[in-house]
Write a protein that binds this DNA or RNA. Structure first.
Length: 403
DNA sequence: TCTGGGGTCCTAGGACCC
DNA sequence: TCTGGGGTCCTAGGACCC
């Protein structure tokens, strides 16, 4: 989906279409927000924009530009989630710290992220895709892989016909645009999807490898991040073509057998991963960055309350989705940005907040708490479906606490 | 006044078992 | 009179993605 969060916001705030808009920051001061929005809006905590109900959309669209909060109003440690194209002209972009962005573009309009709403639009566009092409793999809130192979007409015009139908259906249902890459495998399709953004379609075939893929920087390969890119660059490998020309044995020596051979295959456009239509979650976690760095002793009460809340949130997520987990872990980030994690596995799975809190508390005792903390997180992994774990325990004749 | 949150997958060492 | 070879599980850290 093209600039997904921003595009969803523009549907209800069309008056922002040409303004620099930045979404992100997380932490929202609703009181400030309402003071600025001198208008009657159904705001409530956690869902600042709320459901507008009858006529609500029209009201939102009529809010004058000068009533919107500016990036210069932001105080916090958040990062940008999405920046619209007019905002990007100021040199701001995804993942940049909000405070840094505020220096570059203080007048940009700032919208806090409304994930409930984005999830709703996510469900809607995916439902449209499933209607036309049922073999679909979720890749997060705004991205999917689709297998065209067995879709009637999926091969017409090398896939362009189906891609156009998908775009039209999504636009009709949601008002949103997307970009589609069609290729023989997921690796190339992902790259192709970037070629004609926004609202574009790109077809990449096997014969296009040398002309369209090899000139691209290695970083464009999904799976080559900043570290691999820098390591490759240090050996004079900047483009995918240069990577393709590298000796596979040397790559394996330098990057390990597995990663090295993958690098070589990726550079040659080889990828045989299937489109996976379903997956089971591996872990669930909640974490939070504090508004200021906290000390385990000096800020014991505050930290304790946050810790308990994180455990409750994870427990709530598990319960809502029907999972239990056998491993509980914590994550913390020190004021110097170092991250440490501690895990503990249990003989029996847990789900409730008190049990999670107890084990997570044990984990916390195993880390250095003399430094100030910036972030605290709680995670439950080794997940199983709660009903299956329950059935199994009953089958073994155990009386298990009910999840 | 830099630097979010929620994930997945991989690696590597150690414990433990046969 | 030195100390194999597999295998699995657990843990911690790190790269990467959306």
């Amino acid at each position: 989906m093209d600039a997904f969060f921003a595009s969803v916001e523009l549907l209800r705030f069309p008056q922002l279409a040409d303004a620099p808009v930045i979404i992100g920051g997380g932490r929202l001061n609703v009181a400030d927000w309402m003071a600025r929005l001198n208008t009657r809006l159904p705001l409530h905590l956690g869902r600042p924009w709320g459901d507008d109900g009858e006529g609500g959309q029209a009201d939102l669209a009529r809010i004058p530009l000068d009533q919107f909060p500016r990036l210069s109003d932001y105080k916090g440690r958040g990062v940008i989630t999405t920046a619209t194209y007019p905002a990007r002209a100021f040199g701001v972009g995804s993942a940049m710290g909000m405070m840094k962005a505020a220096k570059l573009c203080p007048q940009a309009i700032w919208l806090p992220a409304d994930f409930d709403r984005y999830r709703d639009y996510s469900r809607r566009f995916k439902a449209e895709i499933l209607r036309l092409a049922p073999v679909m793999e979720n890749r997060g809130v705004d991205e999917v892989f689709i297998d065209f192979t067995d879709v009637p007409g999926g091969q017409d015009d090398a896939g362009a016909a189906l891609a156009q139908r998908l775009q039209a259906a999504i636009r009709q249902a949601t008002g949103l645009t997307c970009s589609i890459g069609v290729a023989p495998n997921k690796l190339l399709a992902k790259m192709a999807s970037e070629f004609n953004k926004p609202n574009g379609i790109a077809i990449v075939q096997a014969g296009d490898l040398q002309t369209r893929i090899w000139p691209l920087p290695c970083r464009k390969i999904n799976g080559i991040g900043p570290k691999s890119d820098a390591a490759l660059a240090s050996h004079g490998i900047g483009t995918i073509g240069e990577l393709a020309a590298a000796d596979p044995a040397w790559l394996c020596e330098r990057f390990g057998e597995r990663h090295g051979s993958w690098l070589h295959r990726a550079a040659w456009g080889r990828d045989d991963r299937p489109v996976e239509t379903s997956s089971e979650p591996v872990s669930m976690s909640r974490e939070t960055t504090f508004s200021r760095d906290l000390h385990a002793v000096n800020d014991k009460a505050e930290l304790g309350a946050i810790f308990t809340r994180l455990c409750e949130q994870v427990a709530g997520d598990l319960a809502r989705k029907g999972f239990v987990g056998r491993t509980v872990g914590i994550k913390l980030r020190y004021d110097d940005f170092r991250i440490v994690t501690r895990d503990q596995s249990l003989p029996q799975p847990v789900q409730d907040a008190a049990a999670i809190r107890r084990v997570a508390g044990q984990c916390l005792k195993r880390v250095d708490l003399s430094r100030r903390l910036r972030l605290l997180g709680v995670r439950v992994s080794a997940l199983r479906r709660a009903d299956e774990a329950q059935d199994e325990a009953v089958g073994r004749g155990e009386s298990l606490p009910l999840f």
